[in-house]
Write a protein that binds this DNA or RNA. Structure first.
Lengths: 333, 333
DNA sequence: AATAAATTTGTAAACGATTGCAAAAATAAA
DNA sequence: TTTATTTTTGCAATCGTTTACAAATTTATT
């Protein structure tokens, strides 16, 4: 069925070497033979077999992506945007993406193992912390470059594309302060995670810059789910007088907004609100929600860019890249 | 760096053939040699090179997925769920997914071309209509099985996993009728698309089943975007008296909901509402929105199942599979 | 016209696995 | 012990490319 380079060579009366060089432009071929070859390729509808090429060149032009899935069935919007960003970048360079997701730590390791046999040229990975130990002991990875996204394993060499969590929150809270707010509530997911801690630092930094005292009663945190968002918001509003509320997590933001709408609280007059992550639904609320938008697509693009430069050995030193979130000012603050 | 089958053969003092047969269990190997080989593989941390295997066996254990992207950067939730479903199924069988998206029709063709050279074992495709012509003329596809999802090219042999659009809408509208509504507005994306037409049929079917006359003033359609959703809803409510509203498209639903919340219309007392697609934001609205949920994950699973059975030649006749949407009854109707 | 230099192409060995064919080793039969 | 049979293994071709090396062809020089 499939036509190969020998067929083309025979049809155009040249050697396979010449055909190959015509395809890749890897050495000079006279115009006449070049045209003969091209005509033959067109006539036979020839397409080079990338697998054979991969075998010979030891380059698969494929990179892997491994990310966590929060819950089976519901794709994680953040990582999907990252994937899109990667796609967008690598497509231009003729690379392909195979991606895989894990829902627990042993699964994560297994996915990596599988990728190792796939001869990927590079890997983009959002790792769990538990991976760190395993990496040290075994030789978990193959000899391809790795770029971490969103999270990073400490004490592990490698590039990482991270989000400047502190900066985004700082900007948002500062914006609140500029609007005259001093009693600003802060709701986040459980402390102890990197991202959550960094966001909290942004809150503190903004308050201290403007000399606003920190009131721990205005600071709430809990597990990242809808109900907790509702609960923490209720707790906060019922016990404290606040004029502004920052929620540093998307799921919690959803819970908070639901509570506020349910209570018919007038946003932004009674309460100014800024949420986290610019997902589609922020345009459904009344008024439109101001948010911190994570540059997920850009993270993907940057990760792809760095990875490809590593693959092509254009640079060799490791860096952390911190991309700044956008503050999207809409009507809720 | 990488260790190959020869190294294993040498280390264990057997031929590469024997090693291969140990790996694949393709012929009898005595227990002693089998253990020698396995020990050697473990000692060398050997993993077979899947690319070499693919070349020899002409099977890549990889399937392709090509879907449209509505707008660069924002992943399409529906297709992402489909992808998850595919992943979920094929992972168990040791297959991999490479996926790609197109944003216009020429791009679509190009993606297919690229996949052809990748030696995929099968393809899952959400095609545009325009593809139909091209398929007839050229030989666009390779000789791998294809499964269509969500949309189908008419008069084209192949399996298709579709969503029973009519049934979902029928059920929702019937639910409205059971609640006593007779003046039910219907908003959808532009007529002429398969999905849109089918959904409209569901609306008609429900009304006619209960002998409710069709009032064309209650039926609106327009391009699928937020502003149109707002606009059509306003047009409808300002000119007509309706007690219930069905919106047969997710983006339009968002616009509609925004308008209704902005106008402080009491849902479901002043107006009962059912929307389309069960995305996260439906839990943000007050009250929670009742919706038709498309079984996207299941579509992916089914598509993968059918494709793999075709790859393994377990069945050879073409079928259309129509998966029923879920009607999720919450508080808005 | 003979030789040197430059231009253009071809030959054949990789890449790392699988597998048809046949040979070696072990056992059974004579 | 020799031969026949069965069990177990190895040889080498193959998949479709790329590429080092060398050969053929053309052009330039004397």
């Amino acid at each position: 069925m499939s036509v190969n380079i020998k067929d083309v060579a025979k049809k155009s009366g040249v050697s396979t070497a010449t055909v190959s060089h015509v395809i890749n432009g890897t050495r000079f071929v006279s115009d006449v033979t070049k045209q003969k070859v091209q005509k033959a390729m067109a006539a036979l509808n020839y397409h080079p077999n990338l697998i054979a090429r991969s075998l010979r060149c030891k380059k698969s032009k494929t990179i892997g992506l491994i990310v966590p899935t929060v819950n089976e069935g519901a794709p994680d919007f953040f990582y999907m945007s990252v994937a899109q960003g990667i796609q967008h970048y690598i497509k231009k360079q003729g690379y392909h993406l195979i991606f895989s997701s894990y829902n627990n730590e042993s699964d994560e390791e297994e996915q990596i193992q599988v990728f190792n046999t796939k001869c990927i040229d590079g890997l983009i990975l959002a790792p769990t912390n538990s991976l760190r130990e395993k990496v040290r002991n075994h030789t978990l990875f193959g000899d391809y470059p790795i770029v971490y996204v969103d999270r990073k394993m400490r004490n592990q060499p490698g590039d990482a594309i991270l989000i400047d969590n502190q900066e985004g929150v700082f900007e948002a809270v500062q914006h609140m302060i500029h609007k005259g707010h001093t009693r600003i509530g802060f709701i986040s997911s459980e402390r102890g995670e990197n991202t959550s801690d960094e966001r909290f630092q942004g809150y503190l930094k903004a308050l201290s810059k403007y000399g606003i005292p920190i009131d721990t009663n205005l600071i709430k945190s809990g597990p990242s789910n809808f109900e907790t968002g509702v609960q923490l918001t209720r707790d906060l509003l019922e016990s404290q007088k606040v004029t502004a509320l920052f929620i540093a997590n998307n799921t919690l933001t959803m819970g908070a907004i639901h509570y506020l709408q349910h209570k018919k609280i007038d946003i932004p007059n009674d309460l100014a609100v800024i949420g986290y992550d610019d997902y589609e639904w922020t345009k459904v609320t009344t008024p439109f929600l101001s948010v911190i938008k994570q540059p997920a697509f850009e993270v993907g693009e940057k990760a792809a860019e760095i990875l490809l430069s590593k693959i092509n050995k254009q640079n060799s030193d490791y860096h952390d890249y911190r991309l700044k979130p956008y503050f999207i000012s809409r009507e809720s603050c």
